[in-house]
Design a protein around this nucleic acid. Structure first.
Length: 579
RNA sequence: GCGCCCGUAGCUCAACUGGAUAGAGCAUCAGCCUUCUAAGCUGAGGGUUUCAGGUUCGAGUCCUGACGGGCGCGCCA
């Protein structure tokens, strides 16, 4: 429709000779869907744009263009409005075509042809398996999952991936925390070091330690341990070394395997119960096993991309806009986290994805140029990597801010949140705010007044439509699709044209939501269409004797229901038929 | 100090990447259920879009500066 109008205007611009023909293509002909019914169904601002070049007042230009246009049959009216907009009104036939196609396509309405776009690897959450996911991760999970669904609907091939940081110091500290908890289970002999994780989940992790390992742990000389106060990471490292030496690396490894495995199971089930599924779980440990990091470093060395300073190997990321150069290989020979990330992201590209999107917390913004530099050093286009920086979730209980820290165990798990406020409400609240906006999540409000959540407003619209349909059936009225289509002309009230126009917007919303990674555009759209429906519902009756009007309205309701249900499903929210 | 993000009604947020009269919910006030679900509808009040300049037919949106808030600036992950 928009393209048809664009062509019409283009022809008119040529014929009217308002501006030189060469200039015509320098202006993008914009067609907007009108927000208000008295602005027609579509409008164009082209007259405002070219008035300067045409040396005429915009209104005059608009009049000339609209007079030059050879009005096709399907355009009911063309109107000029100050300061120079041209408004288009389409005919009933066109509207009927739209409604017919929505009903035919059902949940495919608004979808773009698959594989018509780039293939995307979408990485999100990727929280270290050192603790359960908390409410902050919930935002990432809800947003990432919805974005993936929207991107797919917009025609992209998307693979969702979770990077498991299952190797390195943080994991060692997790094991240390579990071991301390295990020893303290019998009698509290050890002071829990500050560096350790301290949530209540640590205690339950002790249960997965293999029996054989427990006998080794029991042999530990507690006097060595008791003296240590591991308050920072390096002191924790020392303590870990002692334990590793006493019980043996392989036993320590076994414990690590069991604990991480258990932790991952918890994370996976929390996500899955929240409706978030990943296509692939990528293990850092496995990557190391396959020497991927060594190979990446080798490649950088061969390319002479690294330089030595203070005994370490550095990558000159300042060439790519980073603040400073970064170490990839420490003076003790161990590779850094950054080295893992270079190898990991190169691997993503090697797997053939056109575009890599990472959803990261806003505290990672300093990481963007570094990571792009890493990709570029590996001969990939840094433009292929896109980072979506998610702002923080601030948790409130009423007016009181809830402090959060994973280390100290002071956090509200994501699971607790969605079990209490409900998955639908939680997912909607998470996603209804733009990702670059801070989110204040008030637990009390979400729990106590969950009825006030906009998600119920949208779901209620869907339930009401289902209810009307049931009632029509109950009263024994005959549903006649053809009769409804024939009488689409009856849908000429303000409410009805506004709803039709809103329905028509859906594909555009999918497109912009996908392009701008703006999941909240979809959620806001759903609120808008629900609002139009509720207002319409208050004004009109649907269970009526008149066959023509009833069947026409039923078609409209079915379309609204289809779009709401599909939109909600993209957000991971259910569309109940009864509430 | 430097860098990134943000600032819209009393509160929480929209505004289709520059368009027409800046819109919703909550809260306040006034109405609407013997009739399809009142988790709803209708109406009222509430704004110098933090401030000061600039760009143009047109600015909440773009540019510059100030003020206010969040985050970051490790051979941590």
């Amino acid at each position: 429709m928009k393209n048809k109008l664009k062509k019409i205007i283009h022809v008119s611009l040529k014929e009217s000779a308002l501006i030189e023909e060469d200039l015509i293509n320098t202006f993008e002909i914009e067609i907007n869907q009108s927000t208000q019914s008295d602005h027609g169904d579509f409008s164009s601002n082209i007259a405002l744009k070219i008035s300067g070049k045409a040396n005429m007042k915009p209104l005059k230009v608009a009049e000339i263009i609209s007079k030059t246009i050879q009005r096709p049959e399907w355009l009911r009216k063309i109107e000029v409005a100050p300061p120079g907009f041209i408004n288009f009104y389409v005919d009933d036939r066109t509207k009927a075509d739209l409604l017919i196609s929505i009903i035919e396509q059902e949940n495919n309405y608004g979808s773009f042809p698959a594989n018509s776009q780039d293939s995307i690897l979408l990485e999100f959450v990727s929280s270290n398996p050192t603790g359960p996911l908390h409410v902050g991760h919930g935002r990432h999970a809800a947003y990432g999952d919805s974005l993936a669904k929207i991107l797919r609907k917009a025609g992209h091939t998307v693979s969702c991936e979770y990077y498991i940081n299952d190797s390195g110091r943080q994991i060692d500290i997790l094991i240390l925390s579990v071991l301390v908890a295990l020893i303290n289970k019998k009698e509290s002999l050890l002071t829990v070091p500050n560096a350790c994780y301290q949530g209540s989940y640590i205690g339950s992790l002790t249960e997965v330690i293999p029996k054989q390992a427990i006998t080794e742990i029991n042999k530990l000389s507690l006097s060595d341990l008791k003296l240590k106060e591991a308050d920072d990471d390096s002191e924790a490292d020392a303590l870990i070394s002692i334990i590793k030496a006493s019980i043996g690396e392989s036993v320590f490894e076994k414990i690590t395997g069991a604990v991480v495995d258990k932790m991952l199971k918890v994370i996976k089930s929390d996500l899955s119960n929240f409706g978030v599924e990943f296509d692939h779980w990528f293990s850092e440990k496995t990557m190391i096993k396959h020497s991927k990091i060594d190979l990446a470093l080798q490649k950088l060395k061969t390319k002479k991309a690294l330089f030595n300073k203070d005994g370490a190997a550095w990558l000159k990321t300042t060439d790519y806009g980073d603040d400073k150069d970064r170490v990839v290989l420490r003076d003790d020979g161990r590779s850094t986290y950054f080295a893992s990330d270079i190898a990991y992201h190169a691997d993503k590209k090697e797997r053939g994805f056109d575009k890599l999107i990472n959803i990261l917390g806003s505290d990672h913004h300093g990481y963007i140029n570094r990571l792009k530099g890493g990709l570029a050093s590996m001969d990939f286009d840094p433009e292929d990597l896109e980072i979506v920086l998610m702002q923080f979730v601030t948790l409130y209980r009423g007016k009181k801010k809830v402090q959060m820290s994973t280390r100290s165990g002071e956090f509200i798990p994501m699971k607790e949140l969605y079990e209490e406020v409900g998955i639908d409400a939680a997912r909607f609240i998470y996603v209804n705010r733009s990702y670059d906006q801070h989110l204040d999540f008030d637990l009390d409000l979400a729990k106590e007044q969950s009825n006030l959540n906009p998600v119920y407003y949208i779901q209620y619209a869907h339930a009401r439509i289902s209810s009307v349909m049931k009632e029509i059936e109950k009263k024994g009225y005959k549903n006649d699709h053809g009769l409804g289509i024939k009488n689409i002309g009856y849908l000429d009230s303000k409410h009805e044209s506004e709803i039709i126009s809103m329905l028509q917007k859906y594909p555009d919303i999918i497109k912009t939501s996908a392009e701008q990674r703006a999941v909240n555009k979809l959620s806001n759209y759903l609120k808008d269409i629900a609002q139009l429906f509720h207002s319409y519902y208050g004004k009109q009756k649907f269970v009526i004797d008149e066959d023509e009007t009833r069947n026409a309205r039923v078609i409209l309701l079915r379309c609204v229901s289809i779009v709401i249900k599909d939109g909600l499903s993209l957000l991971g929210v259910s569309a109940p038929s009864k509430m």
